[in-house]
Design a protein around this nucleic acid. Sequence first.
DNA 1: GCCGTTTTCGGCCCGACTGTTTTCAGTCG
Length: 577
Amino acid sequence: MSLNRELAARFKTMATVLQLLGESGFKVNANLKVADVLDQLVEDVSTIDDATSIDGIGKGSATKIKEYIETGKMADYDALIEQIPSGLLDVLKVQGLGPKTVQRLWKEANVVDLTTLQEAIDDGRLLALPRMGQKTIDNIKDSLEFIQSSSGRTNIGVAIPIAESLVSQLSNLQGVTQCEFAGSLRRGCETIGDIDILLSTSEPETAIEYFCSMPNVTKVLVAGDTKCSVRIEEGMQCDLRVIDEEQYGAALLYFTGSKSHNVFMREVAIKQGRRLNEYGLFKDDSKDSTPPQSRGIEPIAAQCEDSIYEALNLAWTPPELREENSLDGDGIPSLITASDVKCDLHCHTTASDGTMSIEELAEEGIKRGYHTIAVTDHSQTQAQANGLSPERLVKHIKAIRNVNEQYSEITVLAGSEVDILPDGTLDYEDALLEALDIVVASPHAALKQNPDEATARLCKAIEHPNVHIIGHPTGRIIQKRAGLEPDMIQLFEAAVKHNTALELNAHSLRLDLRDWHIRSAVKHGVSIAINTDAHRPTDFEQLRFGIATARRGGLEPKSCINCFNANELSKWLNQKR
DNA sequence: GCCGTTTTCGGCCCGACTGTTTTCAGTCG
């Protein structure tokens, strides 16, 4: 784990422990924010002279960070975790159990981890506690079971089709006028905790009843007049909010989040003598705790999101940029969209481990209106993927050129996804690489290399005169494999110097580079390639996930080589020839 | 613990739902 991530984990743990010890929520939030900031920081924090220069990190945290960098220890952290049993942190993850209750379970029922929690339920210790009834216990039992059977967050590639199916079912109900998903899914996060769906309808009861009784619902968690939550077979929680049409924009804004964006928006509102909530933006500078809409105050803006931003004198912010630290004051970038993409430069055929022939690949490209598609099968070291020997590659190049002759609508490039070997050399001789139209160099093995070796390895490939693109630079697989952790800044500088593009691999399990890599890469002036790495026709649909990640990173079409027209691309490729 | 276009002290977003209460604390998003 990198230093930034190690530190982030420590601050997160400290926040949780502080919560359990009953410390002020503001202190807890401050620590969580430090964790968040460190998690998203591209530069190694040890290279930053004064950590307080980073927004969200104050004097106290900066001292702790410095101590950890210099000594590998953090006295305050050690002192904190000593104060509670370590297993108590897991107990806090049980849905329905918050810090207050966990503290009581610990002090009054000797619950120290998930096992003792189960024991306390079984032997009746829990039921004996005040304010602890059978229903609460049943809910805890159920959450415990869920924790044991679930892996936590769900990949966007799994969640989006489910969310879209839910939206389409609900949209068909009588009376429904608007319906869409919000939350982290709308912000394009790579994994999500739950699916949030918003809906306007003239028949709320019908919608809620339908939602709670869908065939894949395994449990109804909450069912009120305006909101209900269910757990579905796929293991996710889905929330439905029924919204008045006039307040739809305010609700969409609120339920899209992120939490920190909501806090930001509300603070802006307060400074202007207004109040923002999920029902609208209100003129209200009173200290009255009764919500303005309950006091008969009419909203200034509520029906659509942009009217609220406008009323607050803010530019409408695309959902993907509504995160902590997404914007750096340079205004809202003109984010890339899927329709800006005009080519795919990383695809496989049956020659290695794909299912499409060269012709089928070309047809798929034409279907999508691409001017160019690159055939980049695996190189010889990738034996398990049927990687091509030099002799096979020579024949393959000829076959690709033949196919290219057959099509006037699309250019089929002869390329290779050549392995970057652990020492940074490539899997084919230079002469063979020179014969290709395009070279995507990717790491596939030795992905546990230390950061220094990984940096040297990838930089060497970036500097190679025949390499156009570094494919999935870290090799991470979301929730499965951390991949390489090179010094990204060095990679970006080398990429700019040698005019080598770095790939954002669009596959929903890769999304590599990640959103915060892209943000930093863009600032450095790196050219980004967004490719699907298609092995079968349906893989082209993965482009949307790459686009979502790119947008989260603030990528504009001008920085993405897949948005070049045919001439620009050809010129760019030929710079390396 | 962090922060400052009223502030270096005194704030820090806001509402729905549940369960066990008899008026509300706790949790969640």
